[in-house]
Structure formats: structure tokens, C-alpha cells
Simulated scan of single mutants.
Amino acid sequence: MATTINETLTYPGATVAQVAALATDPDFRAAVASYQHALRSEVTVTPAGNGQHVRFEYAHGTDRVPSFAKKLVGDEIPIIQEESWTTPTHADLVVTIPGKPGDMKGTADIEQRGDDVVQVVKLTIKVSIPLLGGKIEDLIAGLLSKAMRAENKVGIKWLAGEWQS
């Protein structure tokens, strides 16, 4: 069994170019990590063919994680989010939690819809742990969805010139 995330993140009044630039801006990603109270974060952006590769590493504390999951993850949850932007508007995503079983893969697409730009993120989460896999998939799905919505919130303020770190 696997769990799927489908998030549509709206950027009112933005352009595709503006939202695409956010995805590969290390300063923006650092602001997102700060907003989410990440324990630490690091972003690297490197050219890859005609696109760019983004590696966003961050770690969250486990103060809001259910006790059954704390036994599996420890004191923090390190996350590595890798994005291969093959065009300015399409990325293949791979999210890993180092040292933990699981597989998270998907896509991100940026498109104009009327006056707004949307980023559509689709991820499939698979955790192969007998009995607990489904619960952990749901937990990870919730954490990743919350992280995407936080990134959207920061992005809207960032594009409006209202972001203050």
C-alpha cells in the first residue's frame, strides 16, 4: 500500500517566471526552513543539463510526533528533498529520510491559471514496515503537506515583498 499527496499551491497575481525562480532560490528556501522552525537547513542549487538540481536538506524536531513514531525516528527528523527541474516549470521529486525505510517520489509542475500561478505537487509515499507502514505513511504525508503549505505561505509574502525573516 502507498499514500498519495496531491497539493495545489496558489500564488495570486504571480507570473510563472516568478514562481519558477522561487523554486531554485537558496535564500527563499532558507526563509522557508526558518519559518518552519527547522533545526538546521542547507540548500544547494546546481546546473543539470538544461535545468537545475535543487537539494534541500533540513531537520525538524519531534516534539509534535506521536510516540509510536518517535521510537523510529529519534530526536529529530532529517529530510532530504531533491528536485530535478528539467524545465523551469517541471521537476521530478525524491524525498528521503536518511537511514529510514521508505520511498517518496513525485512531480512538481508550475502553470498559469487565470490571474494566478499554481504549483501542483504529487507525491507517492511508501513505507515498508509491517503493521506500522500505513500509519507512518500518513504521518509523513501530513508533515510534507504542511511543509508545502508553509512554503506557499512564505512564497506569497516573498513575491509581494512582505517577507521579513
Rank of each mutant, 00 (worst) to 15 (best):
V73M: 10
S41T: 04
T87Q: 12
H90M: 11
I97S: 09
K153Q: 13
E111T: 03
G49H: 07
R113S: 07
P66M: 04
Q52L: 09
A150F: 09
A20S: 15
Q119C: 07
H53R: 14
I136H: 07
I129N: 02
L159H: 05
T3E: 15
Q18G: 01
G114Q: 07
I79F: 07
K153A: 07
H53V: 02
I5Y: 06
G61D: 13
K122H: 11
G51M: 09
N6Q: 14
V95N: 07
T107W: 03
V154Y: 06
A141I: 03
A20R: 11
P88R: 01
S41H: 14
T44L: 11
V120N: 14
I97M: 14
M104E: 05
K146T: 08
G74N: 08
G142C: 06
L131A: 02
G99P: 14
D25M: 07
K105R: 14
R29F: 09
E7R: 13
A160V: 01
L143R: 00
A21Q: 15
K100Y: 08
V118R: 11
T10P: 05
D116E: 08
Q119W: 02
G99I: 08
S84L: 13
I156N: 14
A141T: 01
E111Y: 01
G51W: 14
A91T: 02
D115H: 06
V65Y: 11
A69F: 12
A147Q: 13
G102A: 07
G61T: 01
T3C: 09
G99C: 10
N50L: 09
V45A: 02
S41F: 08
S41Q: 06
L159P: 12
I77S: 06
T10R: 13
L93Y: 05
N6T: 10
F68W: 15
L93W: 01
P130V: 06
E42G: 11
A160K: 11
L93G: 05
A30C: 06
D63S: 15
I136D: 07
D27S: 15
E162A: 10
I129F: 12
I140F: 13
W85E: 00
E162S: 04
K122Y: 02
Q81I: 04
S34G: 10
S41R: 02
K105N: 12
R55A: 08
T62C: 05
K122A: 04
L72S: 00
V65F: 13
A59L: 09
T3R: 14
K71L: 07
L72E: 01
G142Y: 08
A30P: 13
L22H: 09
I97T: 08
S84N: 15
H37A: 09
W158N: 00
Y58M: 12
A30H: 05
V127H: 05
A147M: 08
L72Q: 01
N50D: 15
I80F: 02
D103I: 00
N6V: 13
T8R: 15
T62G: 03
S128T: 08
E7C: 04
T124C: 05
F56N: 05
L143V: 14
T15Q: 11
